[in-house]
């Protein structure tokens, strides 16, 4: 499990126990929270969603001794409350910057990602498609093989052939696609590191 370097181990353990007494369940909730918080910060146009998710965990961890005694309800909603406060603080900070020639700078500049070469992207796509099972590969390539009106008809046909509802097929494709995109991102990161060390 990824662990934030500046979160003390004991705090993280306490946090996990607060999320759920069962460690495996707690880890799963923790991972999901990291994902949803990052999405929420991203939707609110925060410049560094990952960093702000870390900040949310830090703030909750610092309040944990009191929370354990007083908070009742779904701990996720407490995380959201903290995240929402951070969003408000972020907006306030962005607004307080003086515009220079209509420019507003981000409060937390994000880590830069160099634009990858298209051939590297294609290579990673090929590698990651190769890592999928044949069934998943065929499914995802077929699912995205049509555009506009044709795709609606095609996807309905796919769902019928698979014996699932169109909604279930969409959810399945969403998962495969998310895994594929994550694999390509890791692959590109590795290629970049490799390129730097060569």
């Amino acid at each position: 499990m990824p662990q934030k370097p500046d979160t003390p181990r004991e705090s993280l353990d306490d946090l996990l126990t607060w999320l759920d007494p069962n460690r495996e369940v707690a880890i799963s909730i923790y991972m999901d929270l990291r994902f949803v918080l990052s999405r929420i910060f991203s939707w609110n146009r925060c410049a560094d969603p990952q960093g702000m998710s870390d900040e949310t965990f830090d703030r909750v961890a610092s309040k944990l001794p009191k929370l354990k005694e007083t908070f009742e309800g779904d701990p996720k909603l407490f995380f959201y409350g903290v995240a929402n406060n951070l969003i408000k603080e972020y907006r306030k900070k962005v607004k307080s910057f003086s515009p220079v020639e209509f420019i507003e700078r981000s409060v937390h500049p994000p880590q830069e990602v160099e634009e990858e070469r298209p051939d590297l992207r294609e290579e990673c796509l090929s590698i990651c498609l190769g890592k999928l099972t044949a069934e998943k590969r065929q499914l995802i390539l077929s699912y995205y093989s049509k555009e506009k009106q044709a795709k609606i008809v095609h996807r309905a046909k796919m769902a019928r052939e698979l014996g699932v509802s169109p909604e279930a097929l969409r959810v399945r494709m969403l998962r495969i696609r998310a895994a594929l995109e994550e694999c390509i991102e890791h692959c590109l990161d590795e290629m970049e590191v490799k390129g730097e060390t060569d």
Partner: peptide, 24 residues
């Protein structure tokens, strides 16, 4: 497409769709 990281995600998403279309 606000950050370079998001733009990379968009390029990856576009590549998947283009690849699937080309394959078909």
């Amino acid at each position: 497409a606000n950050t370079s990281h998001q733009r990379r995600k968009l390029r990856i998403a576009a590549s998947i769709n283009q690849y699937a279309l080309a394959e078909s």
